[in-house]
Amino acid sequence: MIKEERNFADPQFETAMIPGRFQRTMRHCIVWQLIRMVFFSVRSIGIIMVNLKNEKELPST
């Protein structure tokens, strides 16, 4: 049991989900997070490319 599981005692928290030990470790695993940083950067470049693709010009009124 991780200590955060005690938080479920509050009924407001009942429908949420919290990460287990493995997920929490991965959040701070340097190698894995470097990979995720590259992944997010690629995602962001994708968004920039979509924005560039959507750039249009309208006739001035």
Partner: peptide, 27 residues
């Protein structure tokens, strides 16, 4: 005045957002 205007509709725009949940090089 006949030049075309450039568009940037928020309904056709993507965005990246990073919301900090704590500061620290490794933590």
């Amino acid at each position: 005045s006949s030049a075309h205007l450039h568009e940037a509709s928020m309904a056709e725009m993507g965005a990246a957002c990073v919301a900090s949940a704590g500061k620290g090089l490794t933590g």
